[in-house]
Structures are given as structure tokens and as C-alpha cells.
Design a protein around this nucleic acid. Structure first.
Lengths: 217, 217
DNA sequence: AATTCTTTTGACCAATTGGTCAGGTTGACG
DNA sequence: CGTCAACCTGACCAATTGGTCAAAAGAATT
């Protein structure tokens, strides 16, 4: 899914990519902080140090820009599930998946927030994604989890709800970061706190579905 | 927290309360579906069958109306934690809390979404609530959980992350209902599915923190 | 019935904002 | 160099929208 970055063919090409990257990153932040309607093209342009008209040159409409932002985080998440295919046992596969999801919550909090917003509002822009890509992705992972259950590696559990639990707990640390920060004396998590959160989530979920741990420390 | 409903003193008083209730309920839905900026006073007025000017008579500003909606769901959640005080053992206390939170996700999906939106955007309107009421509420519940741990009733676990896990998993069923519905062949959960979701969440979390169950069925 | 207070409403306004456009600038390439 | 396409930008516009206001209608009280 992640396309390899190719070398720019010219000065123009390089500048163009750089500008696009700045725009998308800025837009992600503004959309996350203000929602689709609350974000203004002017604010995004200012954040990216561009005249608004120039922004419209790269992204003709606000919705176009928004869609790219949403698709970006979606693909990042899809890639994080690689461990489902490469790891045979649930402890490794789920543990790795949870850890990656937590890392993404830390590294891409804005994208996660934009996605949450989009889904909360009924996914008007990316509804097709839910029906196609996400449905297929989910179904295939459910099969893997079912197999673990049949092999007695995990307790009998509805795989769907297990996935929802992983999604919700990990994304919570991104989407509700302001609440968590407030309850953390107003300061963001440091390295140790992120590590503990990850460990805590992993431990409870894996133990909760009856996975035998090699090293649950 | 839940104020007892008093009898209206007159025809006026009764009508007024009814109108206010309709407005707040409508606003909750519109705010949930479109966000603060995306929701228009006109749309809320239409939904409540009122002229916009009349809506402004009851709620002078959009922010005023919004704040009431947010405070409403917040208080409902606070009340749901009663079991922390009335139930001595973690199985009953946490089980009841999770069950109530799931029931609220089903009965007040719009309120939950509005709250999620507000927090995602940095809680600009209700930041004081997070710093005061929520902080106190959380600290007091953390004390209860710590006591359980000292008594050996649950595994050693950071109480904060346990609370976050309960919040995120239960609210996920409200906030991400569109996604869940799409993955459920496009139809909302029925009674049985809600029951299974509740059981699944409860089982995994309680087992995950090492609670000895009386009847984990 | 008269008075007073609450409620209702259509018309209106100022500010915001997504998007356009004509004309200028700059890099690529023969 | 000259040409062309890509890129940049200030000025502008039409539509939306939160909020106002004055005047009318309705209830409560005397």
C-alpha cells in the first residue's frame, strides 16, 4: 500500500511534492482542530504559507484536500496490520498490531482525529471506503482470528468486537489526547507514559482473550 | 446529579419546558451529525419546528445551546459511575459501570458524538469541566481501583489506563456507529448484538485485569 | 377589561468564506 | 534566446449564516 518514494525528475517536480506535503500536513492539523466545516481554506493557506488562490491551484476544492487527508491515515492504518499475515501466533500478531496502532496514535494524532470526525459525522466523504476496502480488510482479519480460536490459541470471542476494542483503545490516545493531557496535569505523555499505556493495553487485551504470554512484563 | 423533575407551575411553564427539551434534543442530533460549525441554527430551528428567531429567544447564542448539549451527556456519564460507590467488589462495580456505559452508548449516541467532537477539537468550550469536575471524578475512582489492587482483587494495573479502556471501548459503539453499522451489513445492531457486544467487552476487560468471575457466561 | 409580561415571527444585516479569474512570473526545453 | 506550460497571486463575487429588531400575538394577573 505504501508507495515507494521516487526521485523527483526536476526542480519543479521536487518543489511541487514539497508544497503538496506541506499543504496536506497543514490541512490535517487544521481539519483535526476545527472539523471540516470549521476549517477554512484561508487558515490552511496561512499555515502552509501560501496565498489562498495558490492553495486552490493544487486542490481545486476543499473536499478534494480533505479526502486526501482522510485517505492518508486510512492507508497508514491498513499497513499497520501487516503482522496479521507475517506472524503466526496471536501473541506476536496482536501484540505487534496493538503496538503499531499505538505508535500511529502518537505519530499521527491529527490524522486519527480527522478520521474520527469523519466517521462520527456519518462518513459522508469516505463512505465508499468503508463499504469496500475496510469491509474486505476486516473480513480477512476476522478469518485469521477465527483460526486462532479453532486452534485453541485464544478464548472463544467474537473477532469483530476484539477488533473494535483494539481500534477504540489505541485510537483513544490520539482522538481524546486533549482530555488525557488534561488528566495528566496538563502535559502530554512522555516516552515512558506512552510505553506504559501500550504495555497496559496490550496486557489487558491479550490476557482478556486468554493468550498465553511468553513475556508479559 | 440528576435533578428530580418538578411539576410545572402553569401552562406556560409546561410548554416552555417541552419546547426547551425539543430544542436540546434536536440540537444534539444536528451537532452530532455536522459538528459545531457545520450545524446551523436554521437547521436546528427547522428540526424543532420553530422559526429561527424563536430559537434565539430561548438560546441567545449557538454556543449557549451547544454547551447545554455537552453538559447533558457529561452528567449522564457521571451518574453512570454510581456502582463504584455502591458495589464493593470489582466484578460488580466495573461490570455494572461497563453495562451502563454501553446502555448510554445505545440510548444517547448523539450526545456521545457531540462530546467526542468537542474533545477532539481541543475541548474549547468545556475545558473547565475537564480540569475541575472530570479530574476530581477520575481521581476519586482511581482511589477505588487502587484499593482493589491492594486487596488483591485485581491485577496490578494503572487505573487510569483501565478507565480509558472502559471509556474508549464503550463510547466507540456510539461514536463510530456508522462504521460499525457499515461493517454489520449496513444495519444497526439489534438487541442481541448489543447484548453480545456488552458481554464481550465486559468479559475481556474483567478477565484482562484478573477479576475472578462469579458467572462469566 | 385593562395591564403587563412572556412568547412568536418575518425581515433584515454584517461578516465570513469557498471558489473564480485575469494577468503576471518562472522554470524547462529545443 | 524564444516559446510554452506550469505556477503564482491580488482582487473580486455570490452564497451562507449568526444574530438583531420591532412589532404582533398570547397568557397571566389585577
Amino acid at each position: 500500500m505504501l508507495v515507494p518514494v521516487e526521485k523527483p525528475k526536476s526542480k519543479r517536480e521536487g518543489l511541487r511534492r514539497e508544497t503538496l506535503a506541506i499543504i496536506v500536513a497543514t490541512a490535517e492539523r487544521i481539519f483535526a482542530d476545527h472539523g471540516f466545516k470549521g476549517a477554512t481554506m484561508q487558515a490552511i493557506a496561512d499555515g502552509a504559507n501560501l496565498p489562498k488562490a495558490n492553495l486552490h491551484y493544487y486542490f481545486p476544492t476543499k473536499q478534494e484536500l480533505y479526502r486526501q487527508v482522510v485517505e492518508r491515515i486510512f492507508n497508514i492504518w491498513l499497513d499497520a496490520a501487516e503482522s496479521f499475515d507475517t506472524q503466526a501466533n496471536p501473541e506476536e500478531a496482536l501484540g505487534t498490531y496493538i503496538r503499531k496502532k499505538m505508535e500511529i496514535s502518537r505519530s499521527h494524532p491529527y490524522g486519527s482525529k480527522v478520521w474520527a470526525n469523519e466517521v462520527i459525522h456519518g462518513a459522508p466523504i469516505i463512505h465508499d471506503y468503508l463499504e469496500t476496502t475496510l469491509t474486505e480488510w476486516t473480513d480477512s482479519r476476522i478469518e485469521v482470528i477465527k483460526r486462532w480460536e479453532e486452534e485453541g490459541l485464544i478464548d472463544p470471542v467474537n473477532p469483530r468486537h476484539l477488533l473494535y476494542m483494539i481500534w477504540s483503545t489505541t485510537q483513544h490516545y490520539a482522538d481524546f489526547s486533549h482530555q488525557i493531557e488534561t488528566l495528566n496535569s496538563g502535559v502530554p505523555f512522555n516516552d515512558a507514559q506512552w510505553a506504559q499505556a501500550t504495555k497496559c493495553v496490550t496486557n489487558i487485551i491479550l490476557k482478556g482473550i486468554g493468550v498465553q504470554r511468553g513475556d508479559p512484563s
